[in-house]
Computed example of a mutant assay.
Amino acid sequence: MYLNLFAETTDPLDMTGSAEFRSLLTSAADLKIPHEPAIRYRSRNIVLRRMRFHFLEWGRPDAPPIVLLHGGHQSAHSWDLVSLHLAQKYRVLALDQRGHGDSEWSRDVTYSNHEMSLDAEAFIQAMRLEKPILIGHSMGGRNAMLLTRRNQALLKALVVVDVGPEVSEKGRAAIAGFVQAAQEFDDLEHFVSAVRKYDPYRPREHIERTVKYNMLERADGKYISKCDSAPRRLGIVRPSGPMENITLEEATDFRLPVLLVRGETSNILEPDAAERFAAAMPGGRLVTVPNCGHNVHGQNTLGFIGVLGDFLASLDR
């Protein structure tokens, strides 16, 4: 059983009258996130590459477009506070990537970064977005880099959050360990406690608000991850190689403006790796956000929207 509200058909669902939206506004007030009092916010579905994808749409339809790609074992809702803020000036589209959130699970259990980057490209084209700004965190950042390598003419600018061509294997193992342990719980309090141990930066109240976007209630009353666990159950090895990651040499061909955002205590993107990545890109800019780790926009949302706002303003200039 799903714990959250989302569009069940191709008809958009207005989310602004929901209890979930009121809860989001409470979190925004607690964290002092600037936003307009009235906002356009809808849950939608689209069929891409023979799969159903769910996405969240914020802001005016004629505003400049921003596309958001979430990290692994997260969802489009991980961007909610950021989307609420950006919707003051932009049309924001946060995509639930395949096997995540409220999108369809892959029938052939294909979850490579390459395939996900093709999904994102198809989404931009199907929505007829004119030169969107693409923002991706972690897994979503890797997918965004692959899309940029293949078709950077599609984009106005790129924002990569706490990932790059070189990542820490120790940090990756820590994330994998948490994901492995966060598959099944007797109750939601158990899950909240596990997240608090893994992520001490986020307020407990915010974790409690967002838990519905991460878990499903199974028929036996237990709570399980909303992400497709078939690869783990079937022992499918994560793909690797040139189709799954860009190199520093390839980053030199990124001719569009790129903002690389690193969390100060990130265990994934080491400072020297971030510096090499930013330096390789002709239009690259590196900013480190304090008081956060890998999940920058969720752990220090104000800090993240501050550096993002400066970057977006520079594009207008």
Rank of each mutant, 00 (worst) to 15 (best):
Y2T: 14
T9M: 05
L13F: 06
M15G: 05
E20R: 08
E20T: 14
R22H: 14
A28G: 09
D30V: 03
A38R: 11
R40G: 12
S43V: 11
I46C: 10
R50Q: 14
F55Q: 11
L56A: 07
A63K: 03
A63H: 06
P65Y: 10
P65W: 09
L68H: 06
L69K: 08
S75R: 04
H77S: 12
H77E: 10
W79K: 07
L86V: 12
Y90T: 02
D96K: 02
G99T: 08
G101W: 04
R107G: 03
R107L: 07
D108Q: 13
V109I: 15
N113P: 01
M116E: 09
A120F: 01
A126V: 09
L129F: 10
I133L: 03
I133V: 15
S138Q: 10
L147I: 12
Q152A: 07
A153V: 07
V160F: 05
D162A: 05
S168T: 11
R172F: 12
I175H: 11
Q180F: 10
Q183V: 11
E184H: 04
D187V: 03
E189I: 01
H190M: 09
H190K: 12
F191L: 13
P203N: 02
E205N: 04
H206L: 13
R209H: 12
V211H: 01
E217I: 06
E217K: 15
D220G: 00
K226N: 07
D228E: 12
S229R: 15
P231L: 03
R232P: 02
I236A: 03
V237C: 09
S240K: 11
G241W: 05
T247G: 06
E250T: 00
E250Q: 11
E250H: 00
T252R: 00
F254A: 01
L256N: 03
V258Q: 09
L259M: 10
V261C: 07
E264L: 02
N267M: 13
P271I: 06
A274I: 02
M281R: 00
G284L: 00
V289W: 02
N291Y: 07
V296R: 01
L302F: 04
G303K: 01
D310F: 12
A313D: 13
A313S: 13
R317L: 13
R317T: 11
